[in-house]
């Protein structure tokens, strides 16, 4: 028994050592990490790429934008990912981390836009909101409704309290938790923009940036905003069950469920494909991926994958990514990034 065990352990150890050695020495598939928002789009490209070329299908992990950049910037070499997807631009602190670990040349590729929608069940009427309404309804602290430049804990209970033109319905919003990139983007694009409509809060940005951020980005915790987890399908199901509730999620989920839910108007624009593509819908954000230039000639298929992603049949207005709910970029921007990929123009790493 003991002998057998020892033999087995030794054999296994040998397998690991050999296997690990092989896997490290050469990787014949592309390794991609990053944002869960870009994941549904990147996977479509990867699958298409795997089926139409002789290369293996890239492996795509959904780690979130921040987690992806952390892995991406850990170093150069086959054990580190080649590409990271991000639903926001790389931060200067992340660039520093990259440079520190020897990742000196990275190529930034913007792939398109994603709209963030506030939707409710089709059983009730769509809401016509402004970003100021959103801020007042969802922030933890809001300007005193009695006037004066002072913040009070959010007193609003119904949408009518926020804005008399809105229906008399309890504020109940299901949204992503703080770890989510969607939440960050929503706070920045909808709530911060709404907060800025108060001149004295806008002035705070210059005097006390930290307090300004706290005011704009802190979501109320008294039960009106319900953290519903990262699963957007679940939010859609909950909205169906509760016609008074609203949900916050990416446009692709609205696009797939148009029979059950509808997007709220924000600043008079409904979140439709055309509205977001034209730039009229205010709560939309760019999506990116970052490529490690040092890996392009090492990992087989990198160039072809980049070519597939930046081809018109993928990211163009009629491409297969738009069918999955990604909003394509205008022609000029597409051309600019297409050239950046072709020449592998690295990002300035200051």
């Amino acid at each position: 028994m003991f002998k057998k065990t020892i033999l087995l352990a030794a054999a296994l150890g040998l397998i690991f050592a050999l296997g690990a050695g092989n896997a490290q020495a050469a990787r014949d598939y592309i390794s991609i990490v990053g944002s869960s928002t870009v994941y549904p789009f990147a996977t479509v490209v990867a699958e298409q790429f795997g089926k139409t070329t002789s290369y293996k299908t890239p492996k795509i992990e959904s780690t979130g934008s921040g987690g992806g950049l952390k892995l991406f910037c850990a170093g150069v070499g086959v054990e580190h990912p080649d590409i990271t997807n991000a639903s926001r631009a790389i931060k200067s602190s992340e660039k520093e981390m990259c440079v520190k670990n020897g990742v000196k040349e990275i190529v930034e590729v913007k792939i398109g836009y994603d709209g963030i929608v506030m939707a409710n069940s089709k059983k009730s009427a769509p809401l016509k909101l402004t970003r100021r309404d959103i801020f007042l309804a969802l922030a933890k602290e809001v300007p005193d409704p009695k006037g004066g430049e002072k913040l009070v804990a959010n007193p609003y209970k119904t949408w009518k309290d926020v804005n008399p033109s809105l229906p008399n319905v309890k504020i109940e919003v299901l949204g992503p938790p703080p770890t989510s990139g969607t939440r960050d983007a929503f706070a920045e694009l909808a709530m911060e923009a709404g907060a800025k409509t108060f001149d004295w809060i806008k002035a705070m940005k210059k005097t006390d940036k930290k307090a300004y951020k706290a005011v704009c980005h802190t979501v109320r915790e008294d039960g009106a905003y319900i953290e519903a987890g990262e699963n957007d399908n679940l939010i859609v199901q909950k909205l169906e069950a509760n016609p008074d509730a609203f949900g916050i999620f990416g446009f692709s989920f609205l696009d797939q469920n148009t029979d059950k839910i509808q997007g709220s108007y924000i600043e008079g624009v409904q979140p439709t494909f055309d509205g977001i593509a034209a730039g009229d819908y205010p709560v939309s954000r760019p999506l990116f991926f970052y490529v490690k230039k040092a890996h392009v000639d090492v990992i087989p298929g990198m160039k072809e994958y980049l070519k597939e992603f930046t081809s018109e049949k993928a990211w163009g207005p009629d491409g297969y990514l738009s069918e999955k709910g990604m909003i394509p970029m205008p022609d000029a921007e597409r051309k600019q990034y297409h050239n950046a990929v072709e020449n592998l123009t690295p990002l300035m790493m200051k």
């Binding site: 990867a46 795997g50 299908t57 492996k59 959904s62 990262e230 399908n233 709910g325």
Partner: peptide
């Protein structure tokens, strides 16, 4: 927890597991 199309052929090939597949599908918009 990754999108892997090719069937893993060995112990060091990238792969997922059944519960992971369920988790990934539950999060898909389609």
């Amino acid at each position: 927890v990754a999108f892997i199309v090719d069937i893993p052929g060995g112990f060091t090939d990238p792969s997922t597991a059944l519960p992971v597949q369920i988790y990934l599908w539950a999060d898909s918009p389609e």
